[in-house]
Write a protein that binds this DNA or RNA. Structure first.
Lengths: 258, 258
DNA sequence: GTTGTCGGTTCATTATTTGAACCATTATTT
DNA sequence: AAATAATGGTTCAAATAATGAACCGACAAC
């Protein structure tokens, strides 16, 4: 493992549940000597990737990461374009709505709006979503480049619950159904008790650049509600797509099929 | 320069104007050998810090940065809380409104809303703002910890224009006036022809965690307009502060003075 | 057709990184 | 109150990783 790999792996120790860590704890969790860990942290700190609290001496993720992320986002402002739609959907459905951004054959949750209810689906930002077993994943695959679909289904797939479909043929059939319907449906394929619908947000090239999803407890979901939420999320995804690219959704869809 | 420093410095080559770069160009700009550069890029790529386009072979900033930035932001959702206020202010004033996030004695612009006008102030996300010569900087200093103020004014300060105040005593007087008024005023201290007002967004500790600013061409600014914008930005900053911390603004202000 | 530049690779040489042992301070346990 | 444990931090001989000149095939420019 290279020194650069070691340094960056330290950043992965921070999470929503663990926003701050001390030097000794970071070293322990990383499995590196304290001296090594400190040197790596100093390098990261020089570039703003971590910040050390002046009082507690604890480390946390730094503004340098935000800076680069904002530069990355500036090219295509998915987050700020989608935010109002997310909020409206969360209010209208009283369920969890989340936005994911597509990378190279991956989906990263970047925005979540939780409803003010005790029984709700909790989704964390900053987590990658599996493509085969989430509504977002299926929505993405329905509008992905063929090589991305191949890459996603090319390796043995994980069964997260007893409902997870792991046979590529069956997943592709579901992807086709998603494309026809305009939104995907996932019934407890990733987590027991969770029912989700999602739709793809298309970029100028006609391929998915993100997804919008509504996740609800199964106990609060009927066939009619599922269809209603599906249509709502598809409509919102369409509007976000049109807002981002300045083109009609139909034209975008046609482009990827060419 | 350590290997980690070298690797991360490659990321700084990307900007809004230069979102993608090829291997040879990155090596040239960084001043490293192509073999070295490629090895460093591969390490960054393994963690999602850069992505290589499958067709053009060019590199760009990756989702791994967004992931960590979203985790960092999840603790305190400044961006998504402020966005609606930014938009409303941009519409109401027809001027550029921008949000900056406070780090360790630094301010990073994370959100910008430009008006649909030809003559407008252009602000880029992902750029650090000087504290002594911008409205945002003064607003921040007015509500910063004393050691951060000391650090900011402790070294010789840059005169960006002939209007820039660089004498610490005079800056501190302006900081005091900002605190009293509830918003700062900067008349071409950072860039000729630009007039800005800003207000601090306070965190639970009572100190500034960000700033909200309105930047306009001087030719479109009167004393009355300045006061009007100042009050508007102060009101918005106050609402964002209250929304984030769940406390009254007056209580927040009192806490930092204790 | 020729020349230049691209992204990419190799391995002897060079430079950087490592971590055990140590420190002062603070926190925890007895 | 005293003893022990854990913290963040430092050093430098030994160990390991990184380096880059020279090379490659493919593609672009002239």
């Amino acid at each position: 493992m290279s020194t650069v790999d070691k340094a960056i792996s330290l950043l992965d120790l921070f999470s929503i549940d663990t926003p701050e860590l001390g030097l000794s704890e970071i070293a322990r969790r990383a499995g590196y000597d304290k001296a090594t860990t400190r040197r790596l942290l100093l390098s990261l700190s020089r570039h703003g990737f971590v910040e050390q609290d002046a009082e507690t001496r604890h480390y946390r993720l730094g503004a340098g990461l935000t800076r680069l992320a904002r530069i990355r986002e500036a090219r295509l402002p998915l987050l700020q374009t989608a935010l109002p739609f997310l909020r409206d959907l969360a209010i209208a459905t009283s369920e969890t709505v989340h936005l994911s951004e597509a990378g190279n054959a991956s989906l990263l949750t970047v925005l979540v709006e939780h409803p003010a209810r005790a029984n709700r689906v909790n989704v964390n930002v900053g987590e990658y979503l599996p493509l085969h077993s989430t509504a977002s994943g299926l929505a993405y695959l329905a509008h992905a480049r063929p090589d991305a679909v191949k890459a996603a289904l090319g390796n043995p797939l994980t069964a997260f619950t007893s409902h997870t479909v792991t046979e590529p043929g069956a997943i592709l059939a579901e992807v086709e159904a998603t494309r026809a319907r305009g939104y995907s449906i996932m019934d407890q394929g990733f987590e027991d008790g969770v029912f989700s619908v999602a739709a793809a947000i298309l970029g100028s090239g006609g391929y998915a650049i993100g997804t919008l999803a509504i996740a609800a407890p199964v106990v609060r979901t009927t066939k009619a509600l599922a269809a209603e939420r599906g249509q709502a999320v598809a409509a919102a995804a369409r509007q976000i797509s049109e807002r981002l690219s300045g083109e009609g959704f139909g034209a975008l869809r046609k482009r990827a099929s060419a």
